[in-house]
Amino acid sequence: MSDTVLKIDRLCKHFPIRKGFLGRQTGAVKAVDGVDFRVGRGEIFGLVGESGCGKSTIGRAILRAFDITSGRIIYSPQPHVEIELGTMNEAELRPLRRELQMIFQDPYSSLNPRMTVSEIIGEPLRLNRLMDGAQIREEVSRLLRDVGLNPSHMNRYPHAFSGGQRQRIGIARALVMKPRFVVADEAVSALDVSVQAQILELLLKLKAQYSLSYLFISHDLSVIKYLCTRVGVMYVGKLVEVASRDALFRQPLHPYTQALISVVPIPNPRQRTRFRLLEGEVANPAAPPGGCYFHPRCPFAKRICRDTEPALRNVAAEGDAEHMVACHFAGEVGV
């Protein structure tokens, strides 16, 4: 993949733990700890992992919702143009903010209940003085049609809409500034199954229509497999595996990825498996174990796994697409 829209380089986000009256820092939660990946132009890159693994923190770091601890976030609006977002201050970021947008998980709390749909979607246009009132209304109508809502409902308030419809409003809001890159954080997780499929199809349609690239963050492997072109699996602030969707689901190489896939209940009563268990709990990101963070739960852990942290390395055969794994025994253990 030669054309990259976003490149994350050794990204770290540590949240300080402060104690006592003087608020002295006594430690840090390493929410994201040295993550590298690239998102190709027009690609849907999926980030999957258990809650607390740092996947949402990465999404918010890219949008610079906070200052990052270290690393680089390189945004490339067009080929051969590279902009480093990680070190920018708020004033420098402002003109870029419209190009990187976010779709939120909860369509109930992410829309202001006191604003009409037209005000919610049109607000960025108004604040940036890009259009006058009539133009804004026209633009809002067009967006509502694009996301599958009736433009004549633009003067209604969010409470008048169902969860799926609200998510469509949230999507229209993200698209109004014509972004190039969209972070969708658990964008379909709160929806009913029948509506979830509608929104997934809508995201695919809009990607083509608006030439978007997505970072799609989800805990749901089935959704990730359906939507994404490449996938990164996270565990305790680090990527443990990155591969194309097909390679990852056909031949997962990290024991954690294998375990994660094996515990998804298959909707087929003729294929019942006793749930293969992943014992123990996710490691504490404030005090992770030594070596490979997954070793206390890994059924294949050996001495080296306790002592040495494995690097994320490419194990694909020459000529094949990249398949990165952070495991000392990648390809030798598991299924």
């Binding site: 499929a197 749901d220 998804v264 909707p267």
Partner: peptide
């Protein structure tokens, strides 16, 4: 049938068919 057709799943690769409208 529509519920089955609208869920993404790990064991097959068929396209989704969303149910129109909402509850």
């Amino acid at each position: 049938k529509a519920l089955f057709d609208s869920i993404p799943r790990l064991d097959t690769d068929r396209p989704l068919r969303p149910i129109s409208g909402s509850v």
